[in-house]
Design a binder for these strands. Sequence first.
DNA 1: CGGTATTGTTATGGGCCATAGCTATCTGGA
DNA 2: TCCAGATAGCTATGGCCCATAACAATACCG
Lengths: 136, 136
Amino acid sequence: MRDPLPQLPGYSLRRAAHATATELGARLATLGLRQVDASVLILIAENADITASALGRQLDIQRANMVPLLKKLEDERLIERQPLDGKSQALLLTAAGRARMEAALGIIHAFEDELLARIPARHREHLLPALNALWR
Amino acid sequence: MRDPLPQLPGYSLRRAAHATATELGARLATLGLRQVDASVLILIAENADITASALGRQLDIQRANMVPLLKKLEDERLIERQPLDGKSQALLLTAAGRARMEAALGIIHAFEDELLARIPARHREHLLPALNALWR
DNA sequence: CGGTATTGTTATGGGCCATAGCTATCTGGA
DNA sequence: TCCAGATAGCTATGGCCCATAACAATACCG
């Protein structure tokens, strides 16, 4: 079959992202986490007392969509909220949250290693800077 | 803010794909097309009389999800179906479909050029082979 | 010829994201 | 000090994309 699509970086980006997201998602699901959950836990771990709004800005997630996301993590006792003032709240990991985050980080790092291993050596180091040039 | 996420290829892939999909989607929307519509039109143009099932296999779209997709394109008179036998149907572009496909291709190629231009020259040529190694 | 595979289809649900709008609170400049 | 505008958190809603299950009709193959 003639298929010119894989010659298009935008299309390949789409397919590669979908394929890798499916794989990583399946592995994180063993922890009861989605990718976005893991990224939130990681960012809270690195930035204690961050607010939901700041977290959303960093991850490019609308405030509205942070609500159910954080509620799920709070319901599972992975994060806690402490009022900073009358309208803001500081987010921090519980002990369980830190443990879950570290488990997720293990899965993610193993996965990243596998990803890079699939790429021919001469292209490997160029992937990350090329990708980051597209959105940062 | 400390943010280790952009150091992870999987995360950067996710963000880059989302950012570029949003941009390209907005441009294709001026033609009344989504990205997946454009990819279907392109593939039918290159492979006249392809079946819906074969198209889905090539694009990794479930048969069930091809139904509303093709129905939309047929309703807009961009594609036509001709029975191949009692259960299969050949897909082909109408004249309007070919024109729409070519317009989409113009938008896509212009967009791809812009994408590549954002990438520092020494990384540029490595993106496509690196991406394709991740899913093909 | 009969069992199996394939095709097209309906129905349904989840994940992720966007937008609009609301209330309460904070903040900075007059 | 005070008030207008910015900000934080939230509800509600809808769209896109994808996955699964199930079904009838048809094609294929040993």
